[in-house]
Design a protein around this nucleic acid. Structure first.
Lengths: 223, 223
DNA sequence: CCCCGGCATGAATCATCCTTCATTCGTTAC
DNA sequence: GTAACGAATGAAGGATGATTCATGCCGGGG
C-alpha cells in the first residue's frame, strides 16, 4: 500500500483550507476585493503562494467559496430573525432589519461582496451571494403574499429590487461615518426597513409595530 | 509667428475628441466595461493607440468624461419628463418611469456605467453617473416633500435607495430576455415605478393615475 | 531505518493592459 | 520651397497579479 492519508493529515489539510478561507475573509474585510490577492492571502494563512492552488483551482473558485460561505452565514441569520417573528409580515420586517444592520456593521465586507469592482470572472463567482440573499427575501415575500398580507406583486422582481434599495441606501451613499454614532446607524437601518416595507405595500409599518429596534451585531470574521 | 491652429485644425481636433468618446460609448454598449480598453477604442475611432492620450490624460479621465456626458443626457431626459408632469408627485413618477425605461433599453450601457466591475480608479471616475442621477431624484423627492405630498423622510437617503431598487430590479436580476417582448418590458418598468413610489410613501399610485404607459425609447449611441 | 509519494515552496512565467516616447507626418508661416 | 512645430504613430516599456513547476521536504509504510 503506497500511501494513505492519516487522520492527522486530513485534519491538517482541512485546517489549511479553513485558514485560507479565513485569511481571505479578513483581507476582504480590511481592504476589500482589491486587496484580495492570492499572495497576501497565502501569507496571512501562513503558507506559500502556490499552496493556495492545491486547495482552490483558481482565484475565482476561492472567491466563490468565500461568497457561498458568507452567504450561508447571512441566510442563517436572516432565517433565525424571520422565524422568531410572529407573522409573515413581521418576519419580512425582521429579515430586512437584520440584513441592513448586519450589512451596515460589516459594511466593508458587504460592499466587497456586492458592489466592489473586480474582474468579470471573479464577479461571476461572487454573484451567488447576491442571489442567495435575493432568494431568501423572495421566499419571505412569497409567504406574506400567500397569507394575503401584501398586495399582489411579482416576488421574483420585488426581492432583488428590495435588496438593491437596502444595499444602495446603506453603502452606495457617500455615507458619512455612520459607524461613529450608533444612534445614527440604527436610524438608518430603521429608515431603510420602513422604506423597503412601504415599497412592498405595507402601509404604516411603524404604527403596526412591525419595525423593532434591533441591537446591532458585533462585527465578526466568521468564515 | 511659429504656428497657429487653423479653424480647420480646431475642428479636426474636436471631431477626433468626439470620435473617441463615441467609440468608447459604442464599445461600452457592446461589450461592457471589460471591453472598454484604449487600443480597441483607438482602433474604432480610426486613430493610433497613443493618440488617445493627446485627448485624455488617462483611461480614467476618458471614462469620467464618458460617464459625465451620458449622465447629462440622462438628466436632461429626466428633467424633461418631470417638467412635463402636472404635479410634484407625478413628476417623480414620470422621472422614475423614464429612468427605468431608458435603463432597460440601454441595459448594457447602464449596467456598464453602474454595476460592472472595473478597476477602482476607473470606478471612481464612473461614480459621477450614479451621483448625478441620485441628485436629480433627490431634488424631485425634496420638491414633493415640500409640497406635502410625501410623508416626512430623508431625501438624501431615499434617493440612492430608490435608485438602487430600480437598478437592481432591472439589471441586477438574472433577467430573462426582457427585450424580446416589449409588453413584458413595459410591465417591468411599471412594476418598478409602483414599487419605488410606494417606497416613498405614495399609496395606491396606480389608482391616482400617476403611473402612465410610456413608450420605450429607441436605443441610441449618443455621446 | 530507509524508501516512496504526496505536499509545500516561491521564484519564474505568462498574460493583460495602460502608458510612454522616439520617430514620422502634415500643416503653417515666411 | 522650406524651416519649424504640433500632431500622430505604434512598438516597446512597465506594472500588476494570477498561475505554474522544478525542487526540496516530511511523514507514512514496510
Amino acid at each position: 500500500m503506497p500511501y494513505r492519508r492519516t487522520e492527522n493529515v486530513v485534519r491538517r489539510l482541512a485546517a489549511r483550507h479553513d485558514a485560507i478561507m479565513a485569511a481571505a475573509c479578513q483581507i476582504a474585510m480590511e481592504g476589500g476585493m482589491a486587496a484580495l490577492q492570492i499572495a497576501p492571502v497565502a501569507q496571512r494563512a501562513g503558507i506559500a503562494t502556490g499552496t493556495v492552488y492545491r486547495y482552490f483551482p483558481s482565484k475565482a473558485d476561492l472567491v466563490a467559496a468565500l461568497a457561498a460561505a458568507l452567504a450561508d452565514v447571512e441566510i442563517v441569520a436572516l432565517e433565525a430573525a424571520a422565524k422568531a417573528a410572529p407573522g409573515p409580515l413581521s418576519s419580512l420586517a425582521a429579515a430586512i432589519t437584520t440584513f441592513a444592520a448586519r450589512a451596515l456593521v460589516q459594511r466593508r465586507l458587504a460592499f466587497a461582496l456586492i458592489c466592489e469592482p473586480v474582474e468579470p470572472e471573479v464577479d461571476r463567482a461572487r454573484l451567488c451571494y447576491r442571489h442567495a440573499l435575493a432568494s431568501e427575501f423572495e421566499k419571505l415575500i412569497r409567504r406574506a403574499l400567500d397569507a394575503g398580507r401584501l398586495p399582489a406583486q411579482d416576488a421574483a422582481l420585488a426581492a432583488p429590487a428590495l435588496l438593491g434599495a437596502v444595499i444602495e441606501g446603506l453603502i452606495g451613499t457617500r455615507a458619512p461615518a455612520v459607524s461613529a454614532e450608533p444612534g445614527q446607524a440604527r436610524a438608518r437601518v430603521q429608515m431603510l426597513t420602513l422604506f423597503a416595507l412601504r415599497a412592498l405595500g405595507v402601509i404604516d409599518a411603524r404604527a403596526r409595530g412591525l419595525v423593532v429596534q434591533t441591537q446591532l451585531p458585533e462585527p465578526s470574521g466568521g468564515s
